[in-house]
């Protein structure tokens, strides 16, 4: 094998989009400024924006305006159109920019897209992807920093995916596009620049399969999105103290790979969940309930949830730093459960 090819998580997503649009002409993509410069007479204006971080730049040159569309700022309109197009033969990708904007198209998502198949007695399918940025950490304040994935996980009919490595980002995006159900593909804004190995050829990472990022015997840490890195650093720190930490990245929140989590808890007897989202009715709570239900007799210590507080995301750096679960909090929680 030659040199391993590395690229950023954002570019891995771009490659997945290119390869799937090439493979399947029913795949289209739309969103605000995903191309950019629409309606401008300026030479070179076209493709001058390319969506957040320029990830969708280059698509229009290859696939044309029929399949790559800039939209007006009308999320109820274009996300709803993605639902309707998906139900009638296309595989649309709707780019929502920030997940915080979901309130505008939400009816189209949860009353229409998520339920069509069930309401129609299984006679319809809605193969679409909604891409959106999640997460705090760049002082983007209360309306551009939320996690919110628990809301979509709560809704029957939707699938929810969060890649944390470039390899997974490409494979999960390809799976999401090929999947016949509506998938929320959520990208943590601080992970887009993360670099790693990405094979050139198309490949899939299956939805609903967790990844054990680090093996350990003393405690299971389930971490979501950026918190995977926080948990891995905490595990490294604790290794020096002789604590062996297993870190699980669910990768898909719906469907959730409960088996991998439960097998690990049965092995370690201890569970800490690290979730950047707010704590009420959250993934952290959901996973804790799963373990309490199914692995109660394996548990040797109380389950610990490390989450953001039940507040909006604050702007000021000092406040935002206090809001986001820190490595120190994760280390302390692990120390607490292993000392029981």
């Amino acid at each position: 094998m030659g040199e391993e090819r590395t690229m950023s998580l954002g570019l891995a997503i771009r490659e997945a989009l290119h390869q799937e649009m090439e493979r399947d002409t029913s795949v289209i993509i739309m969103g605000e400024d995903i191309v950019g410069g629409a309606g401008s007479d300026e030479p070179g204006a076209e493709d001058s924006w390319g969506g957040p971080m320029g990830i969708t730049r280059g698509l229009v040159g290859k696939f044309g305006h029929n399949r790559v569309r800039d939209t007006p700022i009308s999320e109820a309109g274009f996300v709803g159109a993605a639902v309707g197009a998906a139900a009638t033969g296309l595989r649309p990708i709707a780019a929502l920019m920030f997940i915080d904007f979901f309130g505008i198209p939400m009816d189209q998502i949860y009353n229409q897209g998520a339920k069509l198949r069930y309401m129609f007695g299984g006679k319809a399918k809605v193969p679409m992807v909604v891409r959106a940025l999640i997460g705090a950490g760049v002082n983007a304040a209360a309306q551009h920093s939320q996690s919110l994935y628990s809301i979509f996980t709560h809704i029957p009919g939707l699938k929810v995916v969060i890649p944390t490595t470039p390899y997974d980002a490409k494979g999960l995006m390809i799976s999401a596009i090929r999947d016949d159900d509506p998938v929320f593909f959520l990208e943590h804004k601080t992970l887009l620049g993360e670099k790693g190995h990405v094979p050139e050829e198309p490949y899939t990472v299956p939805l609903g399969v967790a990844e054990i990022r680090r093996e350990g015997d003393d405690v299971t840490v389930v971490a979501i999105a950026k918190m995977v890195n926080v948990a891995l650093s905490a595990a490294e720190t604790l290794e020096a103290e002789g604590v062996s930490v297993e870190v699980i990245d669910p990768r898909t929140l719906s469907p959730l790979d409960g088996e991998t989590i439960l097998d690990s808890v049965e092995k370690t007897g201890r569970l800490v969940i690290v979730d950047e989202d707010t704590p009420r009715c959250s993934l952290a709570t959901d996973i804790a309930a799963l373990a309490a239900d199914e692995a109660f007799y394996s548990l040797e210590a109380p389950i610990k949830r490390i989450t953001a507080p039940h507040t909006p995301v604050p702007f000021s750096p000092t406040l935002e730093n206090a809001y986001i679960p820190s490595q120190e909090r994760v280390v302390a929680a692990i120390q607490e459960v292993v000392s029981v």
Binding site: I104, A140, A141, A142, Q143, H144, P314, F315, T318
Partner: peptide, 22 residues
């Protein structure tokens, strides 16, 4: 310091906030 540029407001002046949502 909770709002920042995108949420700057002063309700006493009748300024109901910048807005992060178009």
């Amino acid at each position: 310091g909770k709002g920042g540029s995108m949420h700057i407001a002063d309700i006493d002046r009748g300024m109901l906030g910048a807005n992060g949502i178009v």
